[in-house]
């Protein structure tokens, strides 16, 4: 998506890590120069993705990277796990779809509040979601 600058890895294994991941993401977003509303949006998206890791895969990680591309800067966050994966990605991305008896807003909501969103998953091989927000 963009050239790499610096990176930070956060292990996600329990609910306190969800808070840690979004706080780290927000700190990098502030350094990179995202506006305060954009910092909040990125932190919220990270929170949703990291919680999915805890809930559905048990364990994974968030890689937070400051990136730059033709003069603009941004934050790229890759949240990945080796859990059961998602059978039907299209369904998982639609509002209200949940296998966890929840609101089903995490993935579609996160997608709405970032600039770039990309998800890859094969059943049995985990999930990788990449989100990017430009300053």
């Amino acid at each position: 998506m963009a050239d790499l600058r610096s990176s930070l890895r956060v292990t996600i294994a329990r609910d306190a890590d969800v808070v840690a991941a979004r706080q780290r993401g927000r700190a990098v977003a502030a350094e990179v120069g995202l506006s305060r509303p954009d910092q909040a949006l990125l932190a919220t998206a990270i929170s949703e993705l990291a919680r999915n890791v805890v809930n559905y895969a048990g364990r994974g990680e968030a890689l937070i990277e400051a990136v730059s591309q033709v003069g603009r800067r941004g934050v790229l966050v890759t949240v990945s796990d080796n859990g059961p994966g998602i059978d039907n990605i299209e369904a998982a991305l639609s509002d209200g779809f949940s296998t966890g008896g929840s609101l089903g807003l995490g993935l579609p909501g996160a997608r709405r509040i970032v600039d770039e969103f990309d998800i890859e998953s094969k059943p049995g091989e985990g999930v990788r979601v990449r989100i990017l927000k430009w300053a």
């Binding site: 919220t44 807003l105 579609p108 709405r112």
Partner: peptide, 11 residues
């Protein structure tokens, strides 16, 4: 900022 995120998320 939190209110804005909530609205966009659909909460």
């Amino acid at each position: 900022d939190v209110a804005l995120s909530m609205v966009l998320l659909g909460l």
